[in-house]
Design a protein around this nucleic acid. Structure first.
Lengths: 339, 339
DNA sequence: CGGCGAATGGAAAGCGCTTTCCCCTCGGAG
DNA sequence: CTCCGAGGGGAAAGCGCTTTCCATTCGCCG
């Protein structure tokens, strides 16, 4: 049993294909009431559904938006995706979601795939990296997509000539550093995530400059890089402890790593937060119940997703726009005021 | 600048459209080496990309699979989605992901949308419900999709005539109950999730029958229904405490609720797990670091997703198939052995 | 009452691709 | 040397839909 086509509906309603199309699939042209009703009725009787592929072909684009994330199982990305999906539903758009499995070099491939599908828009959620070749490739691919009237928005850093929702990673980390100094901490270490991920780098640098404002220097020995994951945090913290560093507070550049760090501290029987305090970044909802409650920098992730899609769908300006996503320091039990 | 078409490639290579198509987009027909190379070369020079919409139209389906989840921000669903996406990548398929935002009555709409798009397959991840009308509607929609050679697989309960990965909710909950009795617990309560969600119901019933095996009765007063979320768990636990029930161990039908319950216990200054022990279900990775470590029933969520897609893509049998997803009780600190 | 423009319906030309069907060219068997 | 069949190439027919571009029909104004 094959699907019902517009032609069948038209025949049944006794009108032309053109009229049926105008009635059923929106058009500027008005159709007389009589015929309009006939068509509608025929469509219902035959249980007609438009063939999206056919529409996509003639319209030049499908009613979908593509989203590229690093890892959908990571709550950071799934929250953003939730925001995009929510907004997409409002717009009557479907969402195609791809996960690079933390291989930023695969981003451009997915952009290409989405271009092939003639997606209305593409949202790039992953962090940009320091790799220039990669960036060039991505930029080229994005260019191609936009030059065939596809819209693109990125989340995180402004490194591509597209609308971008810039997360205030630097400012947030800096404010966090200052707040922690305000709590009385002086000796810090940072669990810094991958050295090539701009999001991680920005947070590290922001934190560093926050400390600098109070004449506190962050020794390179006290910066440990690691995966942007729970285990990455665990390993980095373990490494730090192995180095026997004399620190009072550790900043993990995201909450997931922070949780890993806390686990490592426990496993090494280090009093938390007494001996070593821990702070994170993102304020992941799922992690709000870990104890001690995690000091962090809140980012409204779902909002990020919604904003990005909005930006991508709105009438493009003559130049790429930037929207800042404000962040907010949240002090909790994991970094109690000293004495 | 519009996209390059196959016709342009053909012209440039000096061959017919048919030949170009056969070379570039796979066909049973063989093309002579000379022409083949010419076409390939022309395609590269012009930077040709096939128009997926056009291909979809003539082939009858697009190279995508649709996934319907209840809430992509929930780690349960995002893990399953990750599994599906992983497997889809292996197959060269893109994934369209829709979230019903916990409105099971919207599932059929998304199935319809995916049908319109001519997706290759659809994976239904959300739990089935007790609502017969809804089920009928979903079944009808699924029927239509499969009758136009679309493949469907469901995860959780076998309530639709489609391939299903059945999660052993009942058996798992029953085994958990018995394990808890083995730990010495006798007075139980259940935070039971929405009464209409089969996943929640199955877990409750499984738990009940596990207790029954040891002649322990679960009083209806000790079963509190609530949302399948962290806050749902929090509220249900609070309600339970308000009832002043005399219980030693609480089973929350999923980990997310369990975490909410633990938060409620803390807020009410109830010693955890000493006064009241807590157990969950799912073994959500992100939650493995909450303290006390949560006793739970492990489900390999990513595997669930992978299996479902595999099932959907494999040659359909004459009858819908069922694949059981085994689960495993994991005892941890949140339910210590009694004395 | 004639004439003209607005309103409405339909025929048909694509959109970019796959695939059938037909044709031509060889190679090899008889 | 003829004939047949296989192999490889191309013309063209769609796939289901949107959208010009015409053709009609009215309504109205002068």
């Amino acid at each position: 049993m094959s699907a019902v086509t517009l032609a069948e509906v038209a025949r049944r309603a006794g009108v032309s294909l053109a009229t049926a199309s105008r009635v059923l699939n929106g058009s500027t042209r008005v159709v007389g009431e009589g015929l309009r009703d006939k068509v509608l009725e025929a469509a219902v009787e035959l249980n007609y559904t438009p063939n999206a592929a056919a529409q996509a072909m003639v319209r030049g684009h499908v009613d979908m938006v593509g989203v590229v994330v690093s890892d959908i199982a990571d709550p950071y990305f799934s929250s953003i995706a939730a925001g995009v999906i929510q907004r997409a539903e409002d717009e009557g758009l479907l969402v195609a979601l791809s996960s690079t499995l933390r291989r930023p070099d695969h981003e451009s491939e997915y952009v290409a795939a989405f271009r092939r599908q003639r997606m209305r828009a593409i949202i790039l959620v992953g962090s940009r990296t320091t790799d220039r070749t990669q960036l060039a490739r991505l930029r080229a691919e994005v260019q191609r997509f936009s030059s065939s009237r596809g819209r693109v928005a990125a989340i995180s850093q402004r490194r591509l000539p597209v609308d971008t929702v810039v997360v205030e990673n630097r400012a947030g980390a800096q404010a966090l550093a200052e707040a922690l100094v305000g709590q009385g901490y002086r000796r810090f270490a940072v669990l810094a995530g991958p050295a090539e991920l701009l999001t991680a780098v920005d947070r590290l640098e922001g934190f560093r400059s926050g400390l600098a404002r109070h004449k506190i220097k962050l020794d390179d020995r006290d910066v440990v890089h690691g995966e942007f994951t729970r285990d990455g945090g665990y390993d980095a913290m373990s490494e730090l402890l192995r180095r026997n560093a004399d620190i009072a507070c550790v900043f993990a550049v995201n909450d997931v790593m922070a949780v890993g760090a806390m686990a490592a501290l426990r496993d090494h029987r280090v009093a938390l937060p007494k001996r070593i305090a821990v702070a994170g970044f993102d304020d992941i909802a799922t992690l709000r119940d870990v104890r001690p409650r995690l000091t962090t920098v809140r980012v409204d992730l779902e909002q990020l997703g919604r904003t990005a899609l909005e930006l991508a769908l709105s009438e493009p300006g003559r130049a790429p726009r930037t929207r800042r996503a404000p962040v907010e320091v949240v002090l909790r039990e994991s970094t109690p005021p000293l004495h």
